[in-house]
């Protein structure tokens, strides 16, 4: 399992447009990725390709989240997703 931590840059948090963009990108990847707040137990992680799950997480601007995948070769995929989170889409 590999991980990548990212801080939410969008001013309004991981809602609406950023959530849709993130979920869509995750859905297009060949790997299964989960997302959770940093420090929360593993079983509270949700599917990265579910916009509704992302919205239910209710992650706000400035909060750190961790992306995980079982596929150890998917570093690039995690990087792609992390960059979406680290971009302010409300700017």
């Amino acid at each position: 399992m590999i991980e990548r931590t990212a801080v939410i840059a969008s001013t309004a948090g991981l809602h609406a447009r950023p959530a849709a963009l993130f979920a869509e990108t995750a859905g297009d990847l060949d790997v299964e990725v989960t997302i959770a707040r940093v420090g929360e137990p593993l079983d509270e992680a949700v599917d990265a390709d579910s916009m509704l799950s992302l919205m239910s997480l209710g992650v706000e601007h400035g909060e750190a989240v961790v992306l995980r995948t079982e596929d150890d070769s998917a570093t690039e995929a995690l990087e792609t997703l992390a960059r979406i989170l680290e971009t302010n889409h409300d700017a």
Partner: peptide
């Protein structure tokens, strides 16, 4: 347009 796009994604959303 954005609302419709987001709503479209919900229709196949894994959580749902």
């Amino acid at each position: 347009k954005e609302v419709l796009q987001a709503t479209a994604l919900m229709a196949t959303d894994p959580m749902l």
